[in-house]
Amino acid sequence: MLKIAFAGTLTAAIFLLLFALACWLRIDVLIDTAWLADLDSTIAAVACVALLIADAVLPAPSSLLLIALGALLGKVLGAAAGFFGTMGGAALAFWIGRKGSVLFARIGGNTTSAQLQSYLNRFGVVTVIATRPIPVVAETVAVLAGASGMEWGRFLLGAALGNFPIAIVYSILGSSAATNRMLLVALIGIATALSLFRSRLKEAGKVEARLP
């Protein structure tokens, strides 16, 4: 189990370093969603979906993007677009893990891979569902699932069950916020809190990267 924990920690550290790099470069589209106001609604929605997919490797503000989709497209279409984007991001992270399975085996050893595969065969779907709302952890679990050889169908089932309610809730909030100023203020506060949480995770990644 220690080897599995080490492999998981190393994977999470890589994501955190990528997030820290993106923030250091100060890429505006990865910081907030204010720039969407300057785009046509259709183009803005496509950009939101693309960033949700890229969230597998970049610190895209996923909660704000899902809210924006609800405001741009309405509850139903916004939820559908958000679900598609989050599923794309999950699939990308899983694919990265699958392609990096040889490297994972070298780092953790064949025994670690076998143990992880055994664990995911028993609890994989539940683990994927439970971690989808958690930044960094969701991507880490997806990569580890791909590296372990977990079946695509089982992973996508877990990702779908985890992403579907998230997409619906944020889309409803975004659609409602478009006409409710008080709700919009509340959502900005919540999104800010989530951004601060993610920033703390990035700072933790920087500290970990400096440790010998």
Rank of each mutant, 00 (worst) to 15 (best):
L2W: 14
A7I: 13
T9H: 09
T11C: 04
A12V: 05
I14G: 06
I14R: 00
F15H: 05
L17T: 06
V29R: 15
L30M: 06
I31K: 08
T33C: 06
A34D: 14
A37L: 09
A37H: 07
A45F: 00
A47G: 07
C48F: 06
L51R: 01
I53Y: 01
A54Y: 04
D55P: 02
V57L: 09
L58F: 02
A60Y: 02
P61L: 00
I67N: 04
A68T: 00
L69V: 00
G70K: 06
G74D: 11
K75A: 14
K75G: 04
K75W: 13
A81K: 01
G82W: 05
G82D: 08
F84R: 03
G97M: 02
R98H: 12
K99S: 15
G100R: 09
G108C: 03
G109W: 11
L116D: 03
L116I: 13
Q117I: 06
Y119S: 11
L120F: 15
F123R: 15
F123T: 15
A130K: 02
R132E: 07
I134W: 03
A138Y: 05
E139S: 14
A142D: 06
M150D: 04
E151W: 06
G158A: 09
A159Q: 00
G162P: 07
I166M: 11
I166Y: 03
I166W: 13
A167I: 01
S171L: 04
S171I: 06
G174T: 00
S175P: 02
T179K: 13
I188K: 07
L194T: 01
L194G: 01
L194S: 11
S199I: 15
K202F: 12
A204F: 11
V207W: 14
P212G: 12
